[in-house]
């Protein structure tokens, strides 16, 4: 009866939660005593002192209440007594998404300050996985994940685009230094330093990074100083 009242996505989340639960997670789900020792350890709480919904125990309870309603006996029999609650609609999943993606960085400071050793980061990671499995996630995460899978990097830069960008950057460097040797080396096997570029730097910061490295190379008077990797 209860399962029929759920949306398709909510049903899948509950069904998959049952398969994902480990002993470590269940211990963390049943072990919280709501002592509040974790509250002041959370940087979100420190940044938002007037909003109690940032308290790690509250955030964990949004996952815990689904577990209790569906997998724990007290929550099944007396849900109101332990704040057990099911997910019913896609809106419920959206609310959960805002918490697990938007109000926690999985830094584990709350866990390190928990007398019970409740591992909230593990619970949060599980919740993120469950939501992603039904397509509920922040748009930014969806876009970069798609790019990572399909293109090989989160900025969606194709290898050919990357090499062409390096080519015109080299032309700019060459013109700037008036030196035909001022080129960006790529996949050079005898380089002293390999510069594996951060995917986010490819677009906005590459030019400045490349210039700085090239300046450093020139100051040291050292050829074969650095090289870029072409690899994805």
């Amino acid at each position: 009866m209860a399962q029929n009242a759920r949306s398709h996505k909510a049903s899948k989340v509950v069904e998959r939660m049952g398969k994902k639960l480990t002993r470590q997670m269940v211990g963390s789900l049943v072990g919280c005593v709501h002592c509040g020792m974790c509250t002041d350890s959370c940087h979100y709480v420190l940044a938002n002192p007037d909003d109690p919904t940032y308290a790690p125990a509250y955030k964990a309870d949004q996952i815990r209440k689904i577990f209790k309603r569906n997998f724990d006996w007290t929550g099944k029999i007396f849900p109101w007594w332990v704040h057990a609650q099911d997910v019913r609609t896609d809106e419920d999943l959206e609310k959960l998404k805002d918490i697990v993606f938007g109000k926690c960085t999985n830094c584990r400071r709350c866990s390190l300050n928990c007398p019970m050793g409740v591992d909230f980061a593990t619970l949060n990671r599980m919740a993120r996985g469950l939501l992603v499995s039904v397509g509920v996630m922040p748009e930014g995460v969806a876009v970069v994940s798609k790019d990572q899978w399909e293109v090989g990097n989160q900025m969606g830069v194709l290898p050919q685009d990357y090499l062409e960008t390096l080519e015109w950057l080299s032309d700019e460097l060459e013109a700037e230094f008036k030196d035909p040797a001022a080129r960006i080396p790529i996949d050079r096997m005898d380089a002293d330093i390999v510069y594996a570029i951060n995917p986010r730097e490819v677009k906005p910061h590459f030019l400045s990074c490349g210039r700085e490295l090239d300046h450093a190379q020139r100051r040291m008077g050292h050829d074969q100083f650095w090289s870029l990797l072409r690899g994805r």
Partner: peptide
């Protein structure tokens, strides 16, 4: 056994797994 007071029953488990991971 039906209340949060039984947290002492879970304490060895939660701290075991958290300690093992850390």
């Amino acid at each position: 056994p039906f209340s949060k007071i039984s947290h002492y029953l879970y304490y060895p488990f939660t701290r075991f797994y958290f300690g093992r991971t850390m």
